[in-house]
Design a protein around this nucleic acid. Structure first.
Length: 331
DNA sequence: GGGCCCGCAGGG
DNA sequence: CCCTGCGGGCCC
């Protein structure tokens, strides 16, 4: 058999290019190399900058009601879990980042102080309008939901299925669910693939009843309900975009279960490239960068079987005071 | 595990 | 109304 498939080859090429672009965009975080051995530097395990004041509200005009009442987050046995996760064994000890106030995930039946954090509702009426730019009052960065329905109920990301939600001035929110193999997630920056170019087939009796399908044509910034155009607009308007990471996202920044609100990002670039599909159809790509003055991202221990903890020198505080980055005022 | 069906929210 | 869409459950 060939030493490396063409698919894998393209994937590596795309990943390399995407990562280089992210670096050009000023990413100053350690880079996770999934395909190469992690060179462990003699890490100074000591943490500089101990007290990290958690009062960094994320550049939000209205900071009251930021607290999520913890009394609601004691579900114990009352929380329904999707059957997919039943019986799944997850070692949460490996995922906990002590420095982070954000939970990486909850576990069914396992809920300890270390991974406890804000938890959203699973359903119910909306209290806020998801069609807004920027943060949602009362929903802290790091809030976690078992399913996408909860993200929608709490107005963080409205669609139950779609990855992009937006309006005339750009996207309100996106969901990272690992649907594209060549997306690069560096935590504080990532590349994202647009939607469209899929032929939503179905069965003969129920045509178009599928929600996803393989790529069958080029994506574009114009067609496809203009989801991609929304993100292109975000790149122009620089409106903040809410980002949700899902468990399917193959990233050390993704929760192992459910979906987590990871705060506000900004679209820095929009371009097209050959995507990860057999025919080499073009896809729309976007580079996101996280806005400063937000709680640090949780990082789970490296998932590779070699046991490389690829992440030692994480916490060096970034947030250079330049660019105070208030979200552009809502017009 | 994979296939299929399903409801839903949103934008035009 | 029409269409889409990085879900989720159920059945096999």
């Amino acid at each position: 058999m060939p030493s490396i498939s063409s698919y894998e080859q393209l994937r590596l090429e795309n990943i390399k290019k995407n990562r280089e672009l992210l670096m050009q965009l000023g990413l100053d975080k350690p880079i996770f190399e999934p395909t190469e051995k992690v060179v462990k530097k003699p890490t100074a395990t000591k943490k500089r900058k101990g007290p990290d004041t958690p009062t960094s509200e994320n550049a939000e005009p209205d900071t009251k009601a930021q607290r999520v009442s913890p009394s609601q987050s004691t579900p114990e046995s009352g929380v329904r879990r999707s059957s997919r996760n039943v019986g799944k064994t997850v070692n949460y000890k490996r995922e906990i980042v002590k420095e982070s106030p954000i939970p990486v995930a909850y576990s069914s039946g396992v809920k300890v102080a270390e991974n406890e954090g804000p938890m959203g509702r699973e359903d119910g009426p909306r209290r806020c309008d998801p069609k807004t730019y920027g943060s949602i009052p009362g929903i802290a960065v790091g809030t976690w939901w078992p399913t996408r329905q909860g993200c929608s109920a709490d107005a963080i990301h409205a669609p139950w299925v779609g990855g992009i939600s937006g309006g005339k001035q750009g996207a309100y929110s996106v969901a990272l669910s690992g649907g594209y193999d060549d997306d690069v997630d560096l935590g504080y920056a990532f590349t994202y693939t647009g939607s469209g170019g899929r032929d939503l087939k179905g069965t003969k009796t129920a045509p178009k009843n599928l929600r996803t399908a393989p790529q069958s044509s080029d994506q574009s910034f114009e067609n496809n309900a203009s989801f991609n155009k929304m993100l292109q607009r975000s790149c122009e308007t620089k409106k903040p975009v809410r980002v949700v990471r899902g468990f399917k996202c193959k990233s050390e920044y993704a929760p192992s279960e459910g979906y987590r609100y990871d705060g506000l990002y900004r679209v820095e670039r929009a371009w097209m490239e050959k995507g990860m599909n057999a025919k080499g159809y073009l896809v729309c790509k976007f580079a996101f960068k996280r806005l400063p003055n937000q709680p640090p991202l949780p990082v789970r221990a490296s998932l590779d079987s070699m046991g490389n903890s690829a992440r030692e020198t994480l916490e060096e505080d970034e947030e250079n005071p330049e660019e105070v980055e208030d979200e552009p005022k809502e017009e």
